[in-house]
Design a binder for these strands. Structure first.
Lengths: 253, 253
DNA sequence: CGGATGATTCGGTGCTCACCGAAATGTGAT
DNA sequence: ATCACATTTCGGTGAGCACCGAATCATCCG
C-alpha cells in the first residue's frame, strides 16, 4: 500500500470522451460507421464510393477509426476489409443515432426513395432486426407478456419458453460481455427494437428459417411469404410491419 | 396513401450522428458534460472556472450544447444555470465514456489527488451511485441472487423483495421513458454499476437514510458510519468499498 | 441612483483537419 | 515479366472553429 507522494511525478487517467467523439464528429466518418452497422465487412474502395470521397481520404478516415478502436480491420491481399469492432461499438452507435437530431437530405431518384422505404421497413442493425419490423416485434412481445413491460429489458419466463418453443438456441447463459436482452432506439421509427444476445439469436433464427432474406451489399431485409405466415402466427404482427409498401415516413419530431 | 413522385421536391430524414458527436468532440465541452454528470445545475461561471477557459468561450460552448439538445438551461436573474437535458443524455455520456480510450493527465497537487481518490471511491453519476462503491453494490447484488447473472440487467424476484424490504419505493411501474434496471460502464473501474430507475431509487434511499452524504459542488459521496453498517448488513460489502483510503488506482488497460 | 457582478457580443488570430491529386507501393492475374 | 487494380503516402489548400480580450448588456445590491 503506497502512500501518495507530493514530489513524485504523478498521473491519473480519465476517459477521453472528446477523442472518441471526434472520431464520429465528421460527416464522412459518421456515414462510414452507419454503413458498417449492417454488420458486414466492407472494403476501403466500397466505402470510398459510398461516402463519395477520394480513396486517399478514405484511407485516412479508416486509419483513425481503426486506431481509435471503433473498427476492426483485416487485410487480405490488396484489399482492406473493415467492420465494426464489436457489439459494444454497434450499440453505442445506435444509441447515439437515436439521440441525434435529424437532418433533411434530398432524395435524388426513385431508386433511392425505394431504398429508403425498404430500410425503414426492415433492416439489419449489426446483428439483429431493426426498422418497423423490429419495433413491431418488441411491441408484440410486450403485449403478449414475453418481454417485461414496456421498454424494461426483461425476458419473462413465458418469453423464454416461447423462444425455446421456436427452437431458438438459449443465447447461452448470459455471456460475460454481452447483455442478455437489450433494446436500442431505432433511428427511423424513434422507438425501441430488440438487441442484445436475444435479439441476435432471434435474427439468426429468422434468417435460417427463411422468414427474412438479406440483400447483398445492403442492410435491407425482405420478409418472405413464409416469414409473413410465421410472424402472424407467432406474434400476430399487423400487415404494416410485414409489407414495405405500407411503411410510412417517420413522424415529424 | 400518396405515391412517390419523381418530379416532386423530395427529402428524407437521417439522424445526424456527426452533429451530435461534434458537440462532444471538443475537450472543453466534453469536460463540461462530464462535470454535469453529477446531475446538478451549474452556472456558466462555475463551468468556466472548472474548464479553465474564458467566460466568453464558455458562453459559446453552452449555446452549442443547449441548442444541440444535450443540456437544458434555466435563466434566473443574471445567472444561467445548465444541467443535462435528461436521463438519456446522461446514459449516453456514461456509455460513451466507458468506451472511450484513457488519457493520462498530470496530478498537480495533493488536494487534487485526494479529490481523485474520493471520486474513484464513490460518486454520483447523474442520479445514481458510481465508483468502487457502485460497482461493489452490483457485484454483491449479483452474488446474492438479487440481480440476474453477470451484467444481465434483470432484477430477480428476490431482488424486488429485498428492495421493498428496505423500503425502497418500487420505482413505480416501469415508466414509459426509463428502463427499469440498467447498468452502465463505470469509467474509473471499467466495470458495471447500477443505473436505470432502480439505481436512481436506491441512491435516493441511501441519501435519505444517511448512508451517504453528497459534498456540495462536487459529485463526491462519503459513506457515513451508519452507511457502513447498513451496506455491510444488507450486502456484505467489503471494507475496500467502504473506505476511500483503500480505493486504489484503476487497473491498467 | 451608482457600482459590482454575471453573462454576452464581436472582431481577430492561430491551429487543426478534411479534402484532393499525383505519385508510389504492393498484390493478383495474364 | 507485365499490366491492372486496391490502397497508401505526401504535399498543399481551404474552411471551420476554439480561444481570448475588450466592450456591452442585464441584474442585483447598497
Amino acid at each position: 500500500m503506497k502512500r501518495w507522494d507530493a514530489d513524485q511525478e504523478s498521473v491519473a487517467e480519465t476517459p477521453d470522451l472528446a477523442a472518441l467523439a471526434a472520431l464520429l464528429a465528421d460527416r464522412t466518418r459518421a456515414a462510414i460507421c452507419m454503413a458498417l452497422l449492417d454488420g458486414g465487412a466492407w472494403t476501403a474502395g466500397e466505402l470510398a464510393e459510398y461516402a463519395a470521397v477520394a480513396p486517399s481520404t478514405t484511407t485516412e478516415h479508416l486509419n483513425l477509426l481503426v486506431s481509435g478502436g471503433l473498427l476492426a480491420e483485416e487485410r487480405r491481399g490488396r484489399r482492406r476489409y473493415v467492420r465494426l469492432a464489436g457489439p459494444e461499438a454497434a450499440e453505442t452507435l445506435e444509441n447515439l443515432a437515436g439521440l441525434a437530431p435529424y437532418r433533411r437530405v434530398p432524395v435524388r431518384s426513385l431508386a433511392e426513395a425505394n431504398h429508403r422505404r425498404a430500410l425503414h421497413h426492415a433492416r439489419t442493425c449489426y446483428d439483429h432486426i431493426a426498422g418497423a419490423l423490429g419495433v413491431a416485434i418488441v411491441e408484440a412481445m410486450s403485449e403478449r407478456g414475453l418481454l417485461g413491460r414496456d421498454d424494461g429489458p426483461v425476458l419473462t419466463a413465458a418469453g423464454a419458453a416461447w423462444l425455446t418453443g421456436l427452437g431458438v438456441p438459449d443465447a447461452g447463459p448470459p455471456t460475460a460481455h454481452r447483455a442478455h436482452v437489450r433494446t436500442c432506439l431505432d433511428w427511423t421509427v424513434r422507438r425501441r427494437h430488440l438487441s442484445g444476445a436475444v435479439g441476435a439469436a432471434l435474427y439468426r433464427h429468422a434468417l435460417e428459417h427463411g422468414w427474412v432474406v438479406k440483400a447483398v451489399a445492403t442492410r435491407i431485409l425482405t420478409v418472405t411469404a413464409a416469414g409473413r405466415t410465421a410472424f402472424r402466427a407467432q406474434l400476430g404482427l399487423p400487415d404494416e410491419a410485414l409489407f414495405p409498401s405500407l411503411a410510412l415516413a417517420p413522424p415529424r419530431a
